[in-house]
């Protein structure tokens, strides 16, 4: 079965860049503009990994994450926050809510690769 990635991000440009990077690592990408759209996507099918922005309209990343972890099979996707919220307290809050990893923006493909390796989603080459 192919690996899927849900990119939850309100910036279209960042969504596209992230999808291009993830595509290069062999993930089929699904896009969501905010947390609510992401909930709907997860209700249809749980992805392998979710790259999650924090600040978004309609439903924020942290609200989405709490909701996700309470959904049936909501514990299965690996969640990587990908945000400009780069301070210690946000990182702790995100991890406490159930994130598996945390990327501080700006990021590059090396950082995404490193996080995917740490979570065992791609091989360490």
């Amino acid at each position: 079965m192919s690996k899927t990635c849900l990119v939850v991000e309100d910036s279209r440009v960042i969504r596209r860049v992230t999808c291009t990077i993830m595509d290069g690592f062999g993930f089929k990408c699904i896009e969501a503009e905010h947390g609510q759209e992401a909930v709907e996507a997860c209700e249809k099918e749980m992805p392998t990994v979710i790259l999650l922005d924090w600040n978004m309209p309609v439903m924020s990343g942290i609200e989405f994450l709490r909701k996700l972890r309470s959904m049936p099979k909501g514990d299965t996707p690996k969640v990587i926050f990908c945000t400009t919220e780069n301070d210690f307290s946000h990182i702790q809050e995100g991890m406490a809510a159930g994130a598996n990893e945390y990327i501080m923006k700006p990021f590059d493909s090396d950082i995404i690769k490193s996080k995917l390796q740490l979570l065992g989603l791609i091989e360490n080459t």
């Binding site: 990182i91 945390y102 501080m104 990021f107 950082i111 490193s114 740490l118």
Partner: peptide
């Protein structure tokens, strides 16, 4: 601090 280092170790 984002290359190779798990965020749990960072914290």
């Amino acid at each position: 601090v984002q290359r190779g280092l798990p965020v749990t170790m960072l914290v």
